[in-house]
Structures are given as C-alpha cells and as structure tokens.
Design a protein around this nucleic acid. Structure first.
Lengths: 333, 333
DNA sequence: AGTGATACTGTAAACGTTTCCAGCTGCCGA
DNA sequence: TCGGCAGCTGGAAACGTTTACAGTATCACT
C-alpha cells in the first residue's frame, strides 16, 4: 500500500508514479492513466508523514484553545474547520488547560505536526513564544490582549458592543445602569467594562463605583451580582451583565426577589448565546458571530501559510450587533 | 533544530542523542544529561512526521463527525480530547458533511496522520470501510446502526431512555401520549420510537398512529408537530418529543395556542441540553452524558491502539437518566 | 597477560515520499 | 547520416527519525 506497490503494479518507477499522482512534472497521458488506475485499484493513499518530511508541509493547522467547554469553543472550531477544510487542510485540536507547562507542552507537541496554529490563550507571552516556537512560525492570535507579539491577532468588538448596549439602555431613559463585570484579568471583560464606562460618559451619566459589581462570567456570579445590587440603598433600574450566562443568573435572582423584568429592572447581556432567545423574558444581548471569528482566523493563517501575506502584527476587530429583545423593555419588541 | 544539531552540540552521535532523549536504550547518565541540556538550550523538539515514518505510530487519533454544529458535537469532542490527551495522544478533527465522496476523502486524508479513528456517520458502510481503510485499521463507531462491521461501537440508551420517559408520563395518568419523531432514517430516532411504543404496550395503552407525528429534530418540527396534534379530534394530554429542540418548539406552539404546560398538556424531551432547565416551564428530559460518550469512545480506541484489547465487535450502551422537571407536571417538581 | 563480560557509543539502514538530474527514446532539421 | 531537442522516464538523494548491529573501551577474573 505504498507508492512502490502502485509503481510496480503500473509497471513504472516510483518517481513516475509520484509525478502521475500529483499534478507535478510531465508524464505521458497514458502512463498517468495507468498509474491512477493502479492506485485506485489498490486503494492507495499517500503517507502524510513521509510526504511532510520531504515537503516540510503538513497541510494541517493546530488549534489551541484554553478549554473545550461550551458553545463558544465549538463555534470557533466549526468556523475554523469549515474554512480550513475548503483549503485542503486539516485541524489538530488541543486544549491547554490552566497552568504554565501545559501550554508550552501542547505547543511543542505540535511541532512537525502542523504548519501553523490558531492560538487562544491569555497566558501566551512573548517569552513563551520565543521558547516554544521556531522563529517565524505562523501564528494567529484569538481574543488576546494587545501586545508586541509579532503575530496577527483577531478580537471581537467588545468595547463597541458594550457601549452600544449601554447606550441603548440609557436611550430608554435609564439613569442608574449597573454592570456585572467579567472575570478579573480577562481581556474581554476589561474591554466590555471600558465600553460600559464610555457609554455612561457619553450619556452624561456619572460613574457610580457601587454599580460595578465583580463577576466571573458564571451564572452564579449573575445571581450574586443581582442580589448585591438589590441591597443597594438606591437600586439600579437597568443591569448590563458582561455575558449572557450572568445575565440569565441575574434574571433568575430578580424573579426570585419578586422584581419584574423589564418593568422594574431592565437587563442586557453579551454574546447572544442561543439560550438568550428562550429565557423568559427573552434576553437583549450583543450578538457575536463566533464561527465567523474562527473562519477569519483560519483565513488569516492560511494566507500566512501560502505566503500570500507578510507576517504582520495587524489587529483585526470583528463587529458585534445589538439584538434587542424583551428583557430591556424597549417599546417595539 | 533537528536531532543532528542536538547531537553535534552535545558532541555525540545522533543515535546516542535519540536514545538519550527517549527513554530507550542504555546511555551513560552523564551523556544523557549533556544531551538533554543541549536539547533544552536549542529548543529542540522532534519532528513528528519523521518519527511516525519509522515507528509507524503518529500518536494522533482522528475524529470524524457528520457535522460540527451544536453542543452535542462539542461535548463529544471534549470528552474525546480529555481522554486522549491524558494518554499522550492528539486529536485530528474533521467533519464529513453530507454527500458520499466527502466521507471517503476525509477517511483517506487521515491515512498516515492518525493511528485510529472515532467515527460517527450514518453513511458508513462495510463497502466504504473496505474501500477507504487499510484492513484492520482501528475504528470505533459512535451512535451508528447495528451492522456486521468489524468495529467496536458505542451507542446511547435511546430505547431505554425513551421508554423511561413514556413510562413516567403514563405513570402520571396520561392515556393519550403523542410522539414527535426524529429524522427519518436516523438510528437514534428509530430507537426512541421503539422505546415509546414499548412503554405504551407495557402500560396497556393502544398504539394510535395519529399520535405519531413525523419530525426532524428541528425546533420548527416541534412547532409544526404540536400544532398538528392540537388539530386532532381528540388532542393528546402529553407529548414526548424525540429531542429537546423539538420539545421546546412544541412548548412555544402550545403557549401560542393558549394551552398551559403542564396543566393542559405535559411535555417531555430527550437529550437534556443545558437550555432545558431554562425554558419556562423547565423541561423534563432524558439526560445523556455526551462527553462521557466521547471519553468512552476514546478509551476503547486507545485500548485498541495499545493492543490491550482485541478488535472486537462488541457494542456498548451508555445509560441515560430521566430528569424530571416541571413540564411534565409531576407533583414534587 | 589474556579473556570475556559489561557498559556504552557510533555507523548505517530503513521508513515513504518528492525531486534533481541524467538517460533514453524518437523525431526533426541540417 | 548525424546532432540536437523535445518528451518522457528512472535512479538516487534527501527529509529527520529510530534501531539493529557492530565497535570500543573498561574492568574483573583466571
């Protein structure tokens, strides 16, 4: 089942067989047909390892994610795979959980297996880059903080999305708008908070520190956050949660506390997970096309691999859109 | 950055370097240390392709899924990756969309890249197996119809789960229990229908053909199914939808039609997707631990690869559990 | 001192490809 | 008739590993 067998069966040399099976080089039409037929008959398929040894291309890209849990990651993967497959590439997936050695190990283990990687990791530093990657190794960063790393990087419009949401709430007349924040040290969380503050400033509203509640993206944090806000001397009339999970948690906490949403308190989330449209009342959120993010990352990486683009440092932002549903109390929804 | 460089830097031959870096063979402790140090200093990591060429092991397994959409697949992947990573293996993911050539192409493209594959595909036949896989190639099948294919196979307890659900509904006093079916030709769908019928028979209830509504696992099918059931001269008092998506669709349709759930009509679903607990009323469903399915598949495949188990044909069934929530109207929930 | 065993190290072949280079036809023009 | 050239084909090197085998010390023992 090697190319030798095919060559022998077709009565040619391996060189000719190779040429006939790839498009390369010149082979007589008849010979090509014979070889093709033999390959077909023997169910030959080339050994990728051997091929990559000589061509130094694996036609595989690595996808390194912090975790594999939840639909965010599955959507990213879907977007990447879709794009990559149509370019004739494959996807080697790996998750590098928390903890230092793991990420480096995962990165190293990919050496010789992949032509480049799409990397999403908060802990990826320049130091690590230098240590575990060959210089000039193609990398596309996903949702990472700005840095001087020499890799193109993709982020979603956290700032703009959050600002649009809070602007929307302010536009509905809310003056006291609370924020349930994302995880500490998380880049997305920081950006969304920045958007929140910017919108408040634009609307001429004061920054009230007691209205910024810490959170960690979990539903439980949403519950706790909403409860804390209800304890305030002057409760907010609107809550912007930094993601949908916390927004849904807040929704439950408010319902339990006997508050009506959106009549008493309006709620807005972020991410627009599928569940957002199913909760009661349906959740106003900021839509993010995650699979498009993956697809775009793959496109950038492939461009790098095919040498169609210089390894630049450019940062690309994917737009978000505000999706108005019932939880914010906007009139026509 | 090849092993030659390491050998040269350490002042030994490549053979010794290789032996020092792997555990194999006998090397003087001092030499080993020198080589290790050199490798560390040069950031050497072995070329997987070259290694796999000689050892004929890639330490990678393929995962071939019909699609990458939705949390079912992401959970399967997560389970597989988790298990596989702890065994020192990697995951090459690929989705073989609808259409014949695609699956075969994907399977072939994995030749020389993976040591075995976890395969989930309705269209995988013996014929295809013979054509696109080397004889004896390790394969574990996921959720496929029984067949005489010489591969171990894993399924979830569709029949038992559906039967438990319908039995539960019958136990609540329902006499007219409808079924919104899964996709035509789908193995899971057929099994769930079989469970439905078995439970009816057990409960001494007649099979009413008009109560079996076709569906396709989509939310829209749930909506349409519920509407059709309401049109009946004698509407059912309970509906079992073959998956949660359709159950949620039915929920909406009933709500729109002014029926109360569960007071007027009870509803049960299948899969226990995360959303099930968030809809109003929360959805009674059959829980399936999907990541465990993936993990188990990976375990079986690894056992095959390590030669710890014969390539048997055994069929393994993963249990499901009934999760009672509010949509079925059970008293204590 | 010679012998054999032991402990380590090096040489070289092999894995399955691709590709450079050279060789072999047959044909055309001189 | 012969040189040259195109068109095609084959031999062999190369990619980076692992590993069978052979080689070289060192050392204990007779």
């Amino acid at each position: 089942m090697t190319i030798r067998d095919v060559a022998r069966a077709a009565g040619v040399s391996v060189a000719t067989a190779s040429r006939a099976l790839n498009q390369s080089g010149l082979v007589a039409a008849g010979t090509r047909a014979t070889v093709r037929a033999a390959a077909e008959r023997l169910h030959y398929s080339p050994h990728a390892g051997a091929r990559s040894l000589i061509t130094s291309r694996t036609h595989t890209i690595g996808v390194l994610l912090p975790d594999l849990y939840g639909e965010f990651f599955s959507e990213v993967i879907r977007g990447i795979d879709q794009r990559v497959q149509q370019g004739g590439y494959h996807c080697l997936i790996s998750s590098a959980r928390h903890g230092g050695p793991s990420l480096e190990a995962a990165l190293r283990a990919m050496r010789g297996r992949v032509d480049g990687v799409v990397l999403m990791s908060p802990e990826f530093t320049g130091e690590l880059s230098r240590r575990s990657l060959p210089a000039g190794f193609p990398v596309v960063l996903l949702n990472s903080a700005p840095s001087q790393l020499p890799h193109p990087s993709l982020i979603i419009a956290n700032f703009e999305g959050a600002r649009a949401m809070v602007r929307h709430l302010a536009g509905l007349g809310h003056r006291r708008i609370a924020l349930i924040r994302g995880a500490e040290g998380n880049f997305d969380a920081a950006e969304r908070r920045r958007g929140y503050r910017a919108a408040l400033a634009e609307a001429g509203l004061p920054l009230a520190p007691e209205l910024e509640i810490p959170g960690d993206f979990s539903e439980a944090a949403g519950v706790a956050g909403a409860r804390a806000l209800l304890e305030l001397p002057e409760a907010p009339t609107a809550i912007f949660a930094a993601n949908d999970g916390m927004a849904i948690g807040a929704l439950f906490a408010l319902r339990d506390a006997g508050r009506r949403v959106p009549e008493d308190i309006a709620i807005g989330g972020f991410d627009d997970i599928p569940m957002a449209r199913y909760v009661e009342p349906s959740l106003t959120s900021v839509h993010v096309d995650i699979s498009a993010l993956g697809e775009r990352a793959a496109t950038r990486l492939l461009a790098l691999l095919e040498g169609r683009s210089e390894p630049d440092v450019s940062r690309e932002t994917l737009p978000t859109t505000l999706v108005v549903r019932r939880s914010c109390g906007a009139p026509n929804s």
